[in-house]
Design a protein around this nucleic acid. Structure first.
Lengths: 207, 207
DNA sequence: TTAAATTTATTAAAATATTCACAAATTTAT
DNA sequence: ATAAATTTGTGAATATTTTAATAAATTTAA
């Protein structure tokens, strides 16, 4: 793949989701202008985004939905089969473990860690092994580079430990601030901030 | 507040979080360069972002942490006291209802809706009234404009109904694609996409 | 009290990202 | 078989966002 900008990369999952829905609804061919109405992204932006991967469409015709799905699934690493761990098996952690359509999307959660491992592993919906957080080193799966962080506090200490153990990327659900060690990347999922921004935007529209 | 760009707005919650942590740790004064190391945003970007609100700092000195916290909390609408509803009281919905530090951040969730209202309202951790989804019209709180969507499917139908009932903004946890009615805005929280992007980025770094 | 050292705020420059405009390719209609 | 109508792909133009450079204000030290 050619150089794909951050902005474009953020839109790829949007396209993939929309295309899957379209496919489900029996749509087999689509033009950039139709897709534009569907996902609310300008058609020219869509074409530009697509063209970074290659010549995906046909002039005078449009794009083949199934073909696009295959290409985007591949580009988005659905074949990476990345091994991931989850830290913090509370309500949110369990919700993530039970996300449906999880399999074969980016990879799989191999095991989880918690300070109350014994209690957590008894929960009916917890479908992976749960170890005590102190066993991070011993139980870290080989080649694991991604950790999903769902703990309410004490993030910095855990992040530092994860860094030592070779974790490269963190999906962060924590609301606490922590300093990211050199060489690590993270991606925040901050529900409260998301809501704040939306509230702000809705209120801005009124003025 | 002057014109604040989308990019800047996304950083405000990051600043607020970091400043609160710093305050907790006893830091009362900070320079843009220190904050920069802390949040991993260039100091010049920080100063530019701050200056859009007003002259928040003092040359040769820096910024007063407590003062900044007050200003950002206000800017981010912590005084809006927005009434919100939550739709879909599953594991994720319950996790959101139980988020700590929820109160006085943007507003509060007044009630929830679910297809299995009777079952849901018996759950111990569900701390707001739960109504059947069919009662959306009757039970919609007055002046409510924000809905948090945590249902696994059937999003489009619900979104259309919400639009009719005056909802202006949707915090979307659904993975399904839906078309946003005219005049509505939404903000996606897509865990799987977030992980996909991160996996992709981690793998890009290797090449 | 004055000069040197800081540090913000802001104007200008550079980098990113989006959109326009149209050539090239393809399909549809005649 | 040919012309008209579409629709992609992309170089050029515009818009947005970030970064650099520096003037203005403040503090610190002599």
């Amino acid at each position: 793949m050619t150089q794909v900008s951050k902005a474009t990369l953020k839109r790829y999952p949007v396209y993939l989701k929309a295309l899957r829905k379209l496919s489900q609804d029996g749509v087999s061919k689509i033009m950039s202008s139709e897709l534009s109405d569907y996902v609310d992204i300008k058609s020219t932006t869509i074409r530009r985004d697509f063209s970074l991967i290659g010549q995906l469409g046909k002039q005078g015709y449009g794009y083949d939905v199934e073909e696009l799905i295959k290409i985007f699934a591949k580009e988005l690493g659905e074949n990476y089969d990345e091994k991931m761990i989850l830290i913090g098996v509370g309500r949110l952690g369990t919700a993530i473990l039970n996300y449906n359509n999880w399999n074969h999307v980016a990879g799989e959660i191999v095991c989880a860690f918690d300070i109350q491992a014994e209690k957590r592993k008894k929960e009916p919906k917890v479908n992976v092994p749960v170890y005590h957080i102190d066993q991070l080193k011993e139980k870290m799966p080989k080649g694991c580079e991604i950790a999903i962080l769902c703990i309410p506090s004490g993030a910095q200490e855990i992040v530092n430990k994860l860094h030592e153990l070779g974790i490269k990327g963190i999906v962060n659900f924590t609301r606490e601030h922590f300093v990211l060690p050199e060489g690590m990347i993270k991606s925040d999922v901050d529900v409260v901030s998301t809501i704040q921004e939306l509230v702000f935007e809705v209120n801005s529209l009124k003025k």
